[in-house]
């Protein structure tokens, strides 16, 4: 428990004492939000996972695409 507490304090105090870092963390969070909550969900669905249910269906589709 003491180790967990020490690790928590290490990160807590580290973040607290940051100056430039705060601005950077804000940029990181905004960036990750745009990437995962907007781009990934609305613009980048996995094409084969979304359109087919099984690996067998995916294989058939890709072979069809490669040999058409």
């Amino acid at each position: 428990m003491n180790i967990l507490k020490s690790v928590f304090r290490f990160y807590y105090e580290g973040f607290k004492s940051m100056t430039v870092g705060r601005k950077l963390w804000l940029i990181i969070f905004i960036k990750l939000f745009i990437m995962f909550a907007i781009l990934k969900i609305f613009f980048f669905p996995d094409f084969l996972k979304t359109n087919f249910n099984t690996d067998d269906e995916r294989s058939k589709y890709v072979i069809e695409q490669l040999t058409k």
């Binding site: 870092g21 950077l24 960036k31 094409f47 084969l48």
Partner: peptide, 27 residues
């Protein structure tokens, strides 16, 4: 740190693109 923070995870988008735009390739 500045460079790392701004650049971190920009490569993940390439992996998004593999699944969406390059699915034949990914498979």
């Amino acid at each position: 740190g500045i460079n790392f923070a701004i650049g971190v995870a920009t490569g993940i988008i390439l992996e998004f693109e593999f699944g969406t735009n390059w699915s034949n390739y990914s498979w």
